[in-house]
Write a protein that binds this DNA or RNA. Structure first.
Lengths: 213, 213
DNA sequence: CTGGATCCTGCCCGATACTG
DNA sequence: CAGTATCGGGCAGGATCCAG
């Protein structure tokens, strides 16, 4: 059951043997948002072949990273405590990758789970703490998210609820988060369209979620 | 030039497209210790096929992660600033992998670079700060390392020099670092053999380098 | 000798079809 | 809905060969 190994002894090598296979860490990323069904994972990882998804789920399960839980008629996959400890790894990799991210290409999908983890990556708790609690409804491509910031805690869900600011963002939202584009300019240039609420709140959003390029 | 992509837009996805291929992150790990020649990389990554090493070096270079530097007759590879920013990722993955590490198997090699990064992973600066500066010479398998701790800084090299404690560690050293085995017991059971210096210093080593399982 | 390039084999990945 | 079966292509693995 041990994945293809590297013939070396060490922490990094061991880590890669467990989650280094193609698609594995993306499955973990989506499960960090919450338990998911097989079909939900397949939907979020649009281009994963079903046999690969099935194989990865078995491997991750054998490695003690995820658990297969029958949940009244349906089966969901969720992270074990050891699997949840991958969060710092995923966040660090996401932060690093974000820095060289360009604008989304035509064929690239923006999924809610990926966006959620990116928001967690960019979240600055020590900044948020200084600001009043705020709820945002954000649409990125097809992903609609409810983002609630309260003190130093962040909660991103797909549900609906009352918000202080609702906006839709086109490609280029990245530049708002990286600081290349100020909030006012983002609205002027059409990168962000404010749907409801005071547009000044977009500045609060930009300072709460920030990741330099 | 873009590696096989995932068809998704996001930080984690982007990161995996850059360093998610097999062997890539191990090359980065070794280069985090210092610049290396082609042959040194091949030696440290014993089982990497030469064509794969050559291919990865080209890809990492194209991605702006490493640089190929002619250095008076010889060529060395070194990380770019962007590549060096992978250190938190490698350390986080190493810390995570370390937790499920067993004892080294017969066919597993312990390389100096892998060991160096594991020591960096386990290093606790805030503990070291409270202790007097100490130099250790440690032999793990075939890897001989000079470990210097001074205040909150750690320096691991392959050179030689005056040390306060010299020891050789067998398989099972992991249990000393994880705290499963106390320093006294480690010496008693032969897991660690003190070659020079006061054996009490092994306790200092164990509290300086610690990573819970 | 170092730093690769080349060739070939085999296995993993990817795409699609199919089933309980 | 949650996977399994099948098959082709491409990357990985190992050995060998070549250039400076």
């Amino acid at each position: 059951m041990a994945a293809r190994d590297y013939g070396q002894y060490g922490g990094v090598t061991r880590g890669l043997e467990l989650v280094g296979e193609r698609w594995a860490l993306l499955i973990v990323r989506d499960l960090l948002v919450g338990p998911r069904r097989y079909g939900e994972l397949a939907g979020g990882l649009a281009r994963i072949p079903s046999n690969i998804l099935a194989a990865r789920l078995k491997e991750l399960q054998a490695a003690g990273i995820i658990r297969r839980v029958p949940h009244s008629r349906v089966i969901v996959y969720e992270l074990t405590p050891y699997g949840r400890e991958l969060e710092p790894v995923v966040l660090a990799l996401g932060a690093w990758g974000f820095k060289s991210l360009g604008d989304p290409r035509e064929e690239q999908v923006i999924t809610p789970d990926a966006m959620t983890m990116d928001l967690r990556t960019a979240f600055r708790p020590q900044v948020a703490e200084q600001l009043p609690a705020t709820a945002y409804a954000a649409r990125f491509g097809h992903a609609e998210l409810l983002i609630r910031v309260d003190g130093s805690t962040l909660d991103v869900t797909r549900g609906d609820g009352p918000v202080d600011l609702a906006f839709a963002a086109g490609p280029g939202i990245r530049r708002l988060i990286s600081g290349e584009l100020g909030p006012e300019r983002a609205i002027e240039t059409g990168v962000v369209e404010v749907l409801r609420g005071r547009r000044a709140l977009l500045g609060r959003f930009a300072s709460t979620f920030h990741l330099a390029a």
